[in-house]
Design a protein around this nucleic acid. Structure first.
Lengths: 120, 120
DNA sequence: GGCTATACTTTGAACACTGAACTATTTATA
DNA sequence: TATAAATAGTTCAGTGTTCAAAGTATAGCC
């Protein structure tokens, strides 16, 4: 759904300075614009292989259902990798993929800035 | 609401490597996590003083109500500045504030990356 | 009087997020 | 034998967010 690319900036581009077209970003940006997505990537990047419970503790106030959905989304987008161990009680670890690492390098300075902006 | 700070990373921190605490980012990140917020900032940054209609054309598929809400959010957060001219038909221009400029500098590489990730 | 242009607002439906309670499994304790 | 603990989630009903489409206000032009 929502498949109506082009036309947008191309149409406006003629009268603009130099917009490089940010519109059909679709997938990736839509994913990052879901709640906690960016923080999640940075947290997994920071604590390395991270268990579900560890991640849940790091955030104060995510519902487990949302966290679970978000993790699934990021795994499906191949930003995170999920490894499940056949143990009882169960153990699951999340890690950044190579794509995730790249992304994390762009997100880290943003989150650091946001952190500072919060105080000031 | 949702007032239960600390306890989170502080509790997990003892067993972690070196998470710098990304959780109480609250405001800024929550705002950026709303739909089109990041793209909006970069678009205004790119075309300078931007009129509502110009912005609307740039995005292909935002509803005017959401765009309007998002602009209000960003103005209230002092990331965008809104200037209204007493003309008929009305003219309104949006521009980045200094905070917005800073933010835009962090977002630009992210969006550029996302753009590339989309193709690959 | 009716049309155009701009920057929105309003409405009802669809989708996203929330808190709280619940699931399955095995080991540990009473 | 019964109960509790631990992990990684899922389910549900309620609330918040986003959607598409239609409507609002104003003044100049035909």
């Amino acid at each position: 759904m929502s498949d109506t690319p082009d036309s947008a900036v191309d149409g406006a581009g003629s009268s603009n300075t130099d917009v490089d077209c940010f519109c059909p970003l679709g997938g990736v940006m839509d994913l990052l614009s879901r709640r906690y997505a960016m923080q999640l990537i940075c947290v997994v990047g920071a604590i390395g292989p991270a268990r579900y419970g560890e991640i849940e503790e790091t955030f104060d106030g995510v519902s487990s259902s949302t966290l679970s959905t978000r993790l699934d989304d990021l795994v499906e987008a191949e930003i995170l990798a999920r490894e499940q161990y056949a143990e009882i009680p169960p153990r699951v670890e999340y890690e950044l993929t190579d794509t995730g690492e790249e992304l994390c390098q762009h997100l880290d300075p943003l989150l650091k800035w946001a952190e500072k902006a919060q105080e000031g």
